[in-house]
Structures are given as structure tokens and as C-alpha cells.
Simulated assay, not measured.
Amino acid sequence: MAHIDLFFSTLSPYAYLAGNRAEEVAAKHNATITYKPLDIMALFARTGGTAPKDRHVSRVEYRAQELVRQAAKLGLAFNLKPAHWPTNGAPSSYAFIAAQNAGGGDLGKLMFAITRAVWAENKDIAEDGVVRSCLSEAGFDPALADSGLLEGAETYAANLEEAVERGVFGSPFYITDRDQRFWGQDRIDDLDAVLAGKM
């Protein structure tokens, strides 16, 4: 059975634009997914990236155009300047880790709900109530927002270290069990092709 490690940030607009397409690809190929939320700003600092606020204006302008184009292409609502970005991504990440450990819900749906809250609904995912709502929407116990915080913090930090060691430098980032790496929501079709043995 094929497996995918999915590294992502709950603050990432590109993780939002991925929707549930990676999950659909995984289901198509009977592959499993392990989700690995991480601190994207720390990842940038460790892997030669630059925080959005520090990028050259040409990159900022291109990113603004491309995000809007991709959202339109995918039929997703999108706010280029959300009210609560950047915010603290740790609480939502800890809750996601607790949900993955607990089971019983849809993790793909949870990832989409959290990122949609930022990029389409102008909600602050650092707030407990927002995280609880996302957990509930995805079929998880909303109380997971308040559980396993120490384990969540440890896993969150470990995910960053693993990401650096395995060549991850952005979000979302997919790695197959054969170490085929795919950066970005616009590479999900390539992930599909590799799992199908076409590439």
C-alpha cells in the first residue's frame, strides 16, 4: 500500500487551495496519508526561504496575482488580505495533531476547514472557538482543542525537524514512500501520475 506524508501549515494559502484533492488521489490509489503540521515561518528560516513580509515587491505582487488566479480556477472563495493573517498557527496545529491521534473524523476535511477559516472566512484560527468549530465540522470531538497540548507541541516541533531532514521547504509538501517529493497544490496531478506508475 502506498503512503504519503503531507507536510503543511495551517496558515498556508496553498494548503487551502489544495482542498481535498490529495485525499481524493490517495483514495484512488488506496494510499494512506500521515499529516504533519509544522511552523512554516521556522521552516522558511531553516531552508533558505523568506517570510512573505520580507520578500521583494516583485515576488509579493506575483504571489497576489497567482493566489487569486488559482482560487478562481478551483472555484474557491478567497480573501487575499485576511483579517487574521499571520496569526499563531500553533493552537490549530496542536488540535490537528490531537485529532489525528484520536481518530474518528476526516483529517482532510479538518485541514480544509482550518485553512478555509483563514483564507475565506476571516476567522482567527488562534482562537479556541474557531478551532473547536473546525474540529466539529470534520467529525471530531471539539474538546480535542484543549487536549494533548504537550504532545502536540512536541510533535509540532518534531515535524519541523523531520521536514528539514527530508527536503521539505514549503506547504503543502507531499512525500511518497519512495521519496518522490511534490511541492504545492499545483503538483497534485503529478502525485497522482506517480502513484499510478505513469511517471
Rank of each mutant, 00 (worst) to 15 (best):
M1G: 04
M1I: 13
I4H: 00
L6C: 11
A15F: 01
A18S: 15
R21A: 12
A26C: 05
T32M: 00
T34M: 09
P37I: 06
I40M: 07
M41P: 01
L43F: 00
A45N: 07
A45C: 06
A45M: 08
T47P: 05
T47W: 00
G48D: 02
H56M: 13
H56Q: 14
V57M: 14
S58W: 10
R63Q: 09
A71Y: 02
K73L: 13
A83D: 08
P86C: 02
T87D: 01
G89W: 04
P91Q: 05
F96E: 12
G103W: 03
G104I: 15
G104E: 01
G104T: 14
L107A: 09
K109Y: 08
L110V: 04
L110S: 08
M111K: 14
M111D: 13
T115V: 02
R116C: 12
A120N: 05
E121N: 06
K123E: 14
D128Q: 13
G129Q: 07
E137S: 13
A143I: 12
S147A: 15
G148P: 00
E154I: 09
A158C: 05
V164G: 04
V168F: 11
R178I: 14
R178S: 15
Q180D: 15
R181K: 12
W183T: 04
D192Y: 02
L195T: 03
K198A: 12
